[in-house]
């Protein structure tokens, strides 16, 4: 999954309009905020920081110390050529749709920002395969913890990662995955009961 985009602007029309333009080009999550107060916790997680569009008057100045310059785009209501000191990326409210597309694309493909937002599509580790095998066979977290000599907390965190990587949430779905990928041996078990 791509990184998220955050738009902070007091005008609903600007927020919704910019969101619509971005979404017409990219399959990306866009979060909208009226002011900076409620977005602080977005930057405390260990995950990849979002790309932030912020209005020049109120939001951008207070965000500049919190966000890498590459990730911050200042929304200005001035003509296209004027730049504001101290900010790397600018977008005028008079910009065209393709200006928006080019700007977002250039940030998304920047090698420094290439890190993916989550683990979707990653290979399972050997340990995760062990856990998956036991989940697929219908064991509880407690049983899995005992069998693998790890804490229940660790089992839960492995399960969370497995689901994130595979995009499969239900236990019977994970069982089907494990069988399709020969992680469990189908000759010794009753499939009807498991799925």
């Amino acid at each position: 999954m791509l990184r998220k985009i955050v738009i902070v602007h007091p005008s609903t029309i600007v927020r919704k309009g910019l969101e619509a333009i971005i979404k017409s080009f990219f399959n990306i999550d866009v979060l909208l905020f009226e002011n900076v107060d409620s977005i602080v916790n977005l930057f405390n997680s260990s995950k990849r920081n979002p790309i932030v569009f912020a209005d020049i008057e109120y939001s951008a100045p207070s965000l500049i110390s919190k966000i890498p310059a590459d990730d911050l785009i200042v929304l200005t209501s001035e003509s296209l050529t004027q730049k504001k000191d101290g900010f790397k990326n600018h977008l005028s409210l008079f910009a065209s749709k393709s200006d928006v597309q080019e700007l977002v694309h250039s940030i998304l493909k920047n090698p420094n920002t290439e890190t993916t937002f989550d683990h979707e599509g990653e290979e399972l580790s050997l340990r995760e395969k062990d856990v998956l095998k036991l989940v697929a066979l219908g064991h509880t977290n407690k049983e899995i913890a005992e069998a693998l000599f790890i804490s229940i907390h660790t089992v839960i965190s492995h399960r969370k990662n497995i689901t994130e990587k595979l995009g499969i949430k239900s236990i019977s779905g994970l069982t089907v995955y494990a069988i399709l990928n020969h992680i469990i041996d189908t000759s010794t078990i009753d499939l009807e009961k498991l799925i």
Binding site: L166, S172, G173
Partner: peptide, 9 residues
């Protein structure tokens, strides 16, 4: 959840 898993599988 199951419907989504079915599609993904």
């Amino acid at each position: 959840e199951k419907l989504n898993d079915l599609k993904n599988l």
